[in-house]
């Protein structure tokens, strides 16, 4: 379980996060939704320690991440898998080496074990045949899937995905969502997903947090999403619906 308390962050004179609380349960896919530029990625980066918040706490199963010492931080980080908004694959390494990388750096497994595990993860995301291609040679959707494979290769306890399905066709989006859901259920992972995708919200929104201008305005799940009396949220959902109808 991850608990966040009163996370606040200001860049220059712009307050991006204004004190966000929340908790994320294991075995559940928790979604953070909100318009572009509302601070979703910044919140995620605060949680994983890439951005230092001005105030607040992030607690991983009772362990205080931000004020903990370097060794504790390292330990917690090794239990995390992160899929970045732009996949963040290492472009000097092949797909397979990208997936293997955490194993190479952080474990003492034998070559064979590492190769097996990396292949297994690639297979999981349906890319067992793309192992020796370079990231520049594969499509955006494939990159996201490789990013997921790399994020899960060490069996993380905490999985963070920043827009796993933005810019993908609806079918691939659904597949990626299902994949994340399966992994979450199977290994009781605490999964946090940032998304603006209405399908994802309805399908895998076991817990949904709505951010608006740096505040958490609403929290619920896919069943209660459409019955809220928060105007900003309804507007956000309607805009999403409109776009979906236009797509049809």
């Amino acid at each position: 379980m991850i608990d966040i308390k009163n996370i606040a962050k200001t860049f220059g004179d712009r307050q991006v996060l204004k004190g966000i609380d929340g908790c994320f349960e294991p075995g559940q896919t928790s979604l953070i939704i909100g318009g572009s530029g509302t601070g979703k990625s910044v919140l995620l980066k605060c949680m994983i320690g890439l951005v230092k918040p001005d105030a607040g706490e992030v607690i991983y199963d009772g362990r205080d991440f931000l004020s903990g010492d370097k060794d504790l931080q390292k330990e917690i980080r090794r239990e995390m898998g992160v899929l970045f908004q732009g996949s963040a694959l290492f472009d000097s390494k092949t797909v397979l080496d990208n997936v293997r990388f955490p194993l190479d750096m952080l474990t003492d497994q034998s070559e064979e074990e590492k190769l097996d595990r990396a292949q297994e993860c690639l297979k999981r995301v349906g890319l067992e045949n793309a192992g020796d291609r370079m990231p520049s040679e594969i499509s955006g959707g494939m990159k996201k899937r490789v990013g997921i494979a790399r994020a899960i290769v060490l069996n993380p306890k905490y999985l963070f995905c920043d827009e796993p399905n933005s810019g993908l066709d609806p079918l691939t989006s659904i597949k990626i969502d299902q994949l994340i859901k399966e992994i979450t259920d199977e290994y009781k992972v605490t999964t946090v997903i940032i998304t603006h995708d209405m399908n994802s919200m309805m399908e895998i929104g076991e817990k949904i947090m709505f951010l608006y201008e740096g505040n958490k305005l609403w929290e619920g799940n896919s069943d209660t999403l459409t019955h809220s009396n928060v105007d900003e949220l309804n507007e956000f959902i309607n805009a999403n619906k409109l776009i979906r109808e236009m797509e049809r």
Binding site: K45, I48, G49, L50, Q73, K74, E75, R77, R78, M80, V82, F84, Q85, G86, A88, L89, F90, D91, F101, P102, M105, L106
Partner: peptide, 17 residues
Amino acid sequence: GTMRISEQIDALEVMGI
């Protein structure tokens, strides 16, 4: 610089490297 803006450096950092 490219690794920084494409979040590859962040990816290393979250692995604890």
